[in-house]
Computed example of a mutant assay.
Amino acid sequence: MKVKIGSSKLVQPLYEGNPPPTTNYIPLSVFDKVTYDQHVAIIYAYRPPTTPNATIELGLKKSLAVYREWAGRLGKDSNGEPVILLNDEGVRFVEASVDRALDQTVSIGPSASLLSLHPSLEGVEELVQVQVTRFSCGSMVVGFTAHHLVADGHATSSFLVAWGQASRGLEISPLPFHDRTIFSPRDPPILDFEHRGVEYVSKNIKKVYPLIDNSVDDIVAHKVHYTAEFLSKLKARASSMNGPHDRPFSTFESLVAHLWRAITRARGLNGQENTQVRISVDGRARLKNPKVPNGYFGNLVLWAFAKARANDLLREPLPYVAKLLHDAVVNVQDDYFKSFIDFANHKAKEEDLVPNAVADSKESILWPNLEVDSWLRFPFYDLDFGSVGVMWHILYLGN
């Protein structure tokens, strides 16, 4: 696929009235600091008729005035602490074209060719990049990349909805809550849970898995669609050993249990090898007293870890595995989040620990472990620029 770049420019926020000062900054919260220090990419595809580029760009400018962090840059304050500089330097906006029809060019599954439909993720200062690619059939693809240190999936999807609202000439609603200093540690700190080896690890730890065949060189990305009938039967089977007063396991828990077993079997792990699933847990509904304000913009995710030996995972029935996942997620509640806040502000600094997400991000593809994120409750599919064309596809490319 040959993508022709027509223009590439920086787009700044468009304010009503006098613009705010460009010398302010927002400190990263403890939740920002432990997440992945990298860009993630999403690709949207729309059937014709589609919205003009100028309308999409204008909506972007208006939404950046509300979600100002995206137009800034990562930096340090006078104490060397990481911050988001609110300097309004802008986001990258690329206009491109392909001299072929979308159906003849783009596969709906993950492929290397899709990388040309969003700007490069290497050596990027901009916190958001947008590429609008037009095809000869009138279809449009919007590639969106964003830095994870600025916002998690929940917050990023809210921004995307706001971008669509602004493009349609609507008021942005609800408005985001920007204060990242609300996560104050308790005095004295209460460390009810172990966070070493979970959110934080020593700088000197080198993770080695000698039972994994590191010579594998044909790894591919694969997208799977499960029918509603399959998921319904799977959920019933996963919940078949629950008591009469127990709620059935969720579709998410049931499917992840199935995948964990299937992937472990396919990997051919040594039976005594330990394997775990890391599951993202959104703290917005879990933190209480005080409750996190609606529309909090930033990262507010910790992880639940379900663990098992490969032998046990494959020998025990599906309900056993689903319960491992359910119990792990249930344990990450208000008290766990508060314990993490205390640990991050005291012990992590004292012991010079580093975020586990950073340590894991480079070489995890051949490990015996999995990471699972659910977008079921995020409005990613609500990015509506105002055209009457139908959204054809959305694809998360990761980092």
Results as ranks from 00 to 15, higher is better:
Pro290Gln: 11
Leu370Trp: 04
Ser107Glu: 11
Val128Asp: 03
Gly17Cys: 07
Gln12Tyr: 04
Glu199Val: 10
Gln12Lys: 15
Lys9Met: 14
Asp360Met: 12
Ile42Met: 13
Glu89Leu: 11
Glu89Gln: 13
Val66Asp: 03
Pro27Gly: 05
Gly72Cys: 09
Ile212Thr: 15
Cys137Ser: 06
Leu366Cys: 10
Val208Ser: 10
Ala348Lys: 07
Phe305Asn: 01
Phe249Ser: 04
Thr23Asp: 10
Arg315Cys: 12
Asp213Ala: 09
Arg47Gly: 09
Gln12Glu: 12
Asp334Ala: 02
Ala304Lys: 01
Pro355Lys: 01
Val372Phe: 15
His326Lys: 11
Val277Lys: 02
Ser78Ile: 13
Glu194Phe: 03
Thr23Arg: 12
Val30Arg: 00
Asn294Gly: 12
Ser173Arg: 04
Thr105Asp: 06
Leu325Ile: 15
Phe305Gln: 02
Asp384Pro: 02
Ala45Gln: 09
Glu171Asp: 14
Asp342Gly: 10
His154Asn: 07
Asp88Glu: 14
Val128Leu: 15
Phe230Glu: 06
Asp334Trp: 01
Asp103Pro: 00
Pro290Asp: 07
Val330Tyr: 05
Leu160Asn: 02
Pro248Leu: 12
Ser361Gly: 05
Asp187Pro: 12
Ser374Met: 07
Asp77Cys: 08
Ser78Phe: 14
Tyr336Ala: 06
Ser97Arg: 05
Leu28Asp: 09
Ile26Lys: 08
Val372Leu: 08
Gln12Leu: 12
Ile26Ala: 08
Ser8Cys: 15
Ile43Leu: 13
Ile182Thr: 05
Arg286Thr: 09
Ser215Arg: 12
Met391Val: 14
Asp246Met: 11
Asp327Pro: 09
Gln38Gly: 13
Ile341Arg: 00
Leu376Glu: 14
Gly398Glu: 07
Phe159Met: 06
Gly80Ile: 03
Ile279Pro: 01
Glu171Ile: 13
Phe183Leu: 08
Thr51Val: 15
Arg134Asp: 08
Pro27Cys: 08
Asn242Trp: 01
Ile219Lys: 06
Gly153Ile: 08
Tyr25Met: 06
Ser215Thr: 15
Pro174Thr: 06
Ile84Gln: 00
Asp37Ser: 12
Arg168Ala: 03
Leu58Gln: 13
Gly138Met: 05
Ala41Thr: 06
Val94Gln: 04
Arg278Pro: 00
His346Thr: 15
His39Ser: 10
Leu121Thr: 11
Phe340His: 01
Pro379Leu: 06
Asp32Thr: 02
Ile212Trp: 00
Asp352Ala: 14
Ala236Trp: 07
Phe230Ile: 06
Ser173His: 11
Pro355His: 05
Leu313Trp: 08
Ser184Phe: 09
Ile5Met: 10
Ile279Trp: 00
Pro185Ala: 04
Phe385Cys: 02
Thr105Ile: 11
Asn79Val: 04
Arg247Tyr: 03
Asp32Arg: 02
Glu57Trp: 05
